[in-house]
Amino acid sequence: MTEINTALTDNIGRRNRTNVRFRYLVIAGAVITVIPIFLIVGSLAIKGFRQINLAFFTQPAPDTFQAMMAASTGDIIPGGIANGLTGSLLMVFLASLFAIPPGLMTGIYIYENSSQKYARFIRSLAEILQGVPSIILGIIAYIWIVKNITKGYSALAGSVSLAIMMLPLIIRSTEETMRMIPVSIREAAFALGTPYYKMIYKILIPVSFSGLATGVLLALSRILGETAPLMLTALGSPAISFDITKPVSAVPLLIWDFYNDPNMVSLVWSASLFLMVFVLSMNLLARSVASKHKYI
């Protein structure tokens, strides 16, 4: 079949060239994809580091007049993000309280009853809930808490919106972690006559602990940076507050409040840098925990 040989000698050069060209195209595409990471991290680090000092963590945000005075003399802006930081921590803590226990238990329930229609339905609900845009959860917490319970914007409403976000994340990560436990471990426990609830507390949870921790950390890193639902619920507050029935600030809310204010912008760079670093470290921590966990 000399026809093949002729055809090949005719097209080998062209095919090799397209092959090489395509490879360069792929590499170029990948490089373009990662460029924004360096641009974002770089510009935040350069513009944000100047304001990061002790006051940044201990004092509430200044008002725009104070910021303007400082800016006009070239000083760094007084004050910090303490009101946002405390508000974020308060709401994330409450949200964890609301979401982690039922999330874990629902995850275990689905895993234990995975053959049942009801459990599979619950799992699909969690999947759907996970895809709901966060702003909609803000509307929900507004209707439920702001309008009906605290009769005004409140930390409680903010944490409820965050908790609704967190719940499906916890459920799914719990179930997926449990599913990786070899059946033999469960069977070994039952073979020793272990009662069901002990099997869960003494075997299932401890064996999958690091996996569960990863899921929780990832969920926390997701809600820490959330802004949209908090705009509709926690609103923001210039002062440090721990009253869950009153409005509070949050780091992302501070960014939202001040990003358009030219006097405050350098403080907002710092707040953004801090938020990014905080969220990404949580993320990395989660991944390092995940990479360590191995089952027998």
Binding site: I4, A7, R15
Partner: peptide, 9 residues
């Protein structure tokens, strides 16, 4: 083999 090697006939 022919189509992968872009040999038409």
């Amino acid at each position: 083999g022919f189509s992968l090697n872009d040999i038409r006939m």
